[in-house]
Design a protein around this nucleic acid. Structure first.
Lengths: 145, 145
DNA sequence: CGGTTCACTTGCAAAATGATAGTGACTGAC
DNA sequence: GTCAGTCACTATCATTTTGCAAGTGAACCG
């Protein structure tokens, strides 16, 4: 370990970012979660250029985070739904949101409320093995053979 | 709520992504966590163009996730350290890594090991109020007044 | 048949990214 | 003291991506 070797390809973070490593993709996912599943809803909600949105939707569909579904035969119209892969990413968006609220959160911001308790959620990343929040215990990197 | 209003500015995810919404920034943060705190270590580790790395480091420093520290007077050399804001983001990188491993994880990948238990960590985002993993309970969005 | 909605596509300008070469401060070796 | 070498960039230019504005085509509604 000299500190200057490439580890492209073996890093799971990199693998994740290959599929959604840009701002618009994440915001599209957020919109779909909110129920803005149609092209025009997203376009007006995000204020994104139409060609860019079309490309992002195609990329996210290609990457398997979204799938197109025909929700109306007449007129023929599709919307975009989260796949399991896409739904699995939503907790990360919530964590980014919590971080954004803490560190860049001037003014009133939207919150996610747990319907049952009525309380705003407070997303925290823990290690499922120990139950401890990440950042509270010492970690070490292990490289593959 | 008709489904087509703009909520730019009140979304905490958006606020978060304003500060680190791109691939290189996240990979730089990852490298700093690994102990690659110097310019040339990151450049060779990431395979990034020098001008791009310089710009990312400046942006991350400007955004308050990194800070420059003079670690040698002769020759004068700086490295980049995580601020609290930057350290707070690391659990999110771990969560992205877990997602990348699950959904785009062919081949052997690096892992983070809990030093005390010797086990690989399994990052999960929970709601600190209920302790339940996100995605297991129903949520609702609340908009600010 | 004319107007409207939805979901884009096309064409072009602007901005970001990336490759390559070069610069300047310094060190350490001869 | 000069000379190769390291480190941390900057400068220049090509390529790629993004973004805006306008247009297109299918379908429906009156």
């Amino acid at each position: 370990m000299t500190g200057d070797e490439k580890n492209f390809g073996t890093c799971p973070i990199d693998r994740g970012l290959m599929l959604i490593g840009d701002r618009w993709s994440m915001l599209v996912l957020r919109d779909v979660q909110r129920g803005f599943t149609r092209y025009d809803q997203m376009r007006t909600s995000l204020g994104i250029a139409p060609n860019i949105l079309a490309r992002r939707l195609a990329a996210l569909t290609e990457a398997g985070l979204l799938e197109r579904r025909r929700y109306s035969q007449r007129p023929p119209r599709d919307d975009y739904l989260l796949t399991e892969k896409g739904r699995d990413f939503l907790p990360i968006l919530a964590a980014i949101g919590a971080w954004g609220r803490k560190h860049n959160g001037g003014g009133a911001l939207t919150r996610q409320i747990d319907v049952e308790t009525g309380e705003p959620i407070r997303p925290v990343v823990i290690d499922a093995n120990t139950g401890a929040p990440l950042g509270t215990r010492e970690l070490r990197l292990e490289y593959p053979d």
